Computed example of a mutant assay.
Amino acid sequence: MFHKPIDEMFPNPPAGLDAHALREDAVPQHVAVIMDGNGRWAKKRALNRLKGHKAGIAAVRELIRAASDAGVRFLTIYSFSTENWKRPEEEVVGLMDLFAKTMLAEVDGLHAENVRVRTIGDVSMLPQETRDAFAEAWEKTRNNTGMTLLVAVNYGSRQEMLRATQRCIDVAVARAMAGDAPHELTEEEFGRGLYTADCPDPDLVIRTSGEMRLSNFLLWQVAYSEFYVTDTLWPDFDRYEFLRALLSFQERNRRFGAV
C-alpha cells in the first residue's frame, strides 16, 4: 500500500516517465540494492573515492524515503562486503567513520518515519564506534512497525552460508548426542541459520553502474528474484531511477520455475 499519494512521492517526474502507471499491488515486498559506482562517480569529478562514498549517502537517504513511501516492507542495502577490507586502508577507515556518523545523524529521522534499522553481516570486526552506532539504531527502532532497513555491512553470502551450514551441523550433533534419529535437512531449516531468517526473500534486486554480477550478495536468497540493472552511478540514483526499477518489476511475469 502506498504511504503517500503518487504526486507527493514523485512530484516532478522526467518527461516520458509516468508515475501514475505504478500499481500499488505490484510494489515488491523486499527490495535489495547493490550500490555500485561511488568510486567512478568521484573519479569523473577528479575527487577521491571517499568523496564519492559521501555523495552516495544522499542517494541512500532518497532511496529509503522513496521505498518506504511506496510501501516496500523490507529494503536491504549492500554497504560493505567482506571483500571490501582489501581496499586501501584510508578508504576503509573513512568508510567506517562515515557509517558511524551517518547512522547517528539519520536514526532520529528514520525512527520518526517508523523505519526499523538492523544489520546483516559479521559486525564483530567493525570498529567499536561503528558497532555502537548500529547498535544504537537497532535499540531505538527495533519496535517500529514500518519498513525494515537491513544494512549489509561486513557481509558476504558465502560466509553466511558457511555459518548456516555450521549451525545445521551443530544442531545435528546435538540431536545425535541426545539419541534422536537422523533427519533430512530441509531448505527451511538451513534458512533459519541465515542473517535474513525472519525476512522474505528479495523480490527485486537493483544494481547500479551497469555491472552484471552479484558480488557475493544474498546468493541463497535471490534464487527467484527479479533483477534490474542501470548504468546510473550510485550517487546519481534518485527516486525517479527507483520508480523506473519499480515499473520494470511490475511488468515481469514471475513463474518461479513453473510454465
Score class of each variant (00 low, 15 high):
residue 229 V to S: 09
residue 184 E to A: 15
residue 177 M to E: 15
residue 232 T to I: 12
residue 222 V to A: 09
residue 159 Q to F: 10
residue 258 A to N: 11
residue 213 R to V: 01
residue 200 P to W: 05
residue 250 Q to A: 07
residue 222 V to R: 09
residue 167 R to K: 14
residue 203 D to C: 04
residue 234 W to Y: 03
residue 193 G to K: 13
residue 228 Y to P: 00
residue 206 I to S: 01
residue 229 V to P: 02
residue 163 R to M: 12
residue 242 F to M: 03
residue 180 D to I: 09
residue 186 T to Q: 08
residue 197 A to G: 03
residue 218 L to Q: 09
residue 159 Q to N: 13
residue 174 A to E: 15
residue 206 I to N: 01
residue 236 D to I: 03
residue 199 C to V: 09
residue 257 G to D: 05
residue 241 E to L: 10
residue 196 T to A: 04
residue 182 P to A: 05
residue 174 A to D: 12
residue 181 A to N: 12
residue 229 V to E: 00
residue 226 E to I: 03
residue 177 M to C: 13
residue 191 G to R: 12
residue 193 G to R: 10
residue 161 M to Q: 12
residue 254 R to F: 07
residue 220 W to H: 10
residue 221 Q to V: 01
residue 155 Y to T: 01
residue 170 D to F: 00
residue 167 R to E: 03
residue 215 S to R: 12
residue 242 F to W: 03
residue 211 E to H: 14
residue 253 N to S: 15
residue 198 D to E: 14
residue 253 N to M: 12
residue 219 L to D: 00
residue 175 R to Y: 06
residue 186 T to S: 15
residue 237 F to L: 05
residue 199 C to N: 13
residue 234 W to G: 04
residue 187 E to A: 15
residue 226 E to V: 06
residue 210 G to C: 11
residue 255 R to W: 06
residue 227 F to D: 01
residue 165 T to V: 08
